[in-house]
Write a protein that binds this DNA or RNA. Sequence first.
DNA 1: CTCGCTGCAAAGCCTTTGCATTCGC
DNA 2: GCGAATGCAAAGGCTTTGCAGCGAG
Lengths: 160, 160
Amino acid sequence: MKIYEKLRNELKKRHLRITSQREAVLSVFLENEGEHLTADEAYEKLSHKNSHISKATIYRTVDLLKEMGFLSKVNFGDGMERYEVKDLNTHQHHHLICTKCGQVYEIKEDLLEDVEKLIEERTGFKIQDHQLNFYGICPKCQASKNEEKNTEEAARHSIK
Amino acid sequence: MKIYEKLRNELKKRHLRITSQREAVLSVFLENEGEHLTADEAYEKLSHKNSHISKATIYRTVDLLKEMGFLSKVNFGDGMERYEVKDLNTHQHHHLICTKCGQVYEIKEDLLEDVEKLIEERTGFKIQDHQLNFYGICPKCQASKNEEKNTEEAARHSIK
DNA sequence: CTCGCTGCAAAGCCTTTGCATTCGC
DNA sequence: GCGAATGCAAAGGCTTTGCAGCGAG
């Protein structure tokens, strides 16, 4: 597959080693696109498969993959660092987060097409990245607002 | 001052108590607008003045002030929760963060004037808030990019 | 063979919580 | 005086780090 070659090339270029762990960590994010996994979630998913990779390695690897441009860090205000595959070929997207159940939806349009350039011109910054999150209540939670408390699962993901 | 009256009214409305700590915490954010203080920074600023308020109370109070709409939580990817005064009268603003020295600049324009409504219509979400951050290298850090490492202070604020 | 990478456990940091005491109302 | 708020210290949760052993090149 193309992206694993890219990974190997990038590692070689930096004189770093190609290890099964590095490929496995990238794979778990590829196989769960749109899920914005935390390090811990990636660890669980990997454990359920085959690979027993230590959490320390997961943390070190997501950091490296981010540095090499394969992952982006995203933050939904729930106190954990989350990562997603950075697809350089597609448009950027933004996130719409339900503050009640924690569900995250992606907004496909790139609303900031020309804004980065504008800001670079005005401020002299060299812009590398941006992150746009909308917070609100999803239709499902609006509907159930007066019913009993949502699931435990939801409560765990809710945002303060 | 107007905003302290608003605080007292809001507390009364919720049958909560008016305490010196609650006013002091709000005051430190008002006196340091544009600084995006963490709980710990607020604690330090308060200690240097007069008020000795425990950190636990700071945490509890910023949370309450956010719930009541006096503060907004902002996140710059540095692993700490930051808060700023939420000025309901002015336009929204966004943040431009230098990933090297951690300096934060504010972008005054509201770039998302109509976007929220559009998203509400399309998705059925009830949008409460949004957060837009740009990450890049500020002019100063671009200039000094080949010089020796920036200050310790800067390193502490840098974003991975 | 060498040096980078991993795994494990311990340590670090920020934040939350339990409980006795204090203090609005 | 009653119950909420505070302070202190301990606990919690996520992330980083030290170090011995393993494994890629």
